[in-house]
Amino acid sequence: MNSASVNRVQVKEGDYRVSGDPNVVLSTFLGSCVAVCMRDPEIRLGGMNHFLLPGDDDFLDPRHAERFGVHLMEVLINGLMSHGASRDRIEAKLFGGAQILSHGRDIGQANANFARKFLRVEGIRIVASSLGGDRGRRVEFRPCSGQARQRRLPLNTLPGVSPKAEMPDLLESGTLEWL
């Protein structure tokens, strides 16, 4: 594919995007946040969300974080289904959930656990994942082909050092496609 034809779309925290355009690349930067990439392979349509669960301490109602997370998963699934995806065919790739701070509650782990549990309960197959660790990630997902790649960001990124300078890490699972 000609790189000039690539349409890179940023997915920000609390947001989601759905596309079936082969030229679209959904892109995001993750620390302790998690991005769930979902796709219906039969109609070549996919999407990505990007979420960070609020801490229990932020609300008087301790179940609010769970409801918030479920909402962000639902809007992505509904977005796919409204464009013709079948819920039974949807498969997922998960990224993020790093523990960026060495002390305190592991928010990244909580986000990753939530995403895995949600997908298990909903019967959505996880075909690849890269979760946890102590480094942020730059993730790209092609919603049409389902190809995904990531670059792990340097531990202490200095000003002026572009994360793009890093070579992509190969993943242990081997189930992620690399562009």
Binding site: E66, R67, V70, M73, I77, E122, G123
Partner: peptide, 16 residues
């Protein structure tokens, strides 16, 4: 609700 997790959340909140 078609989402299992959502049904459980509504149910647990109703129980509360």
């Amino acid at each position: 609700d078609d989402t299992n997790t959502s049904r459980m959340l509504v149910s647990s909140t109703l129980q509360e």
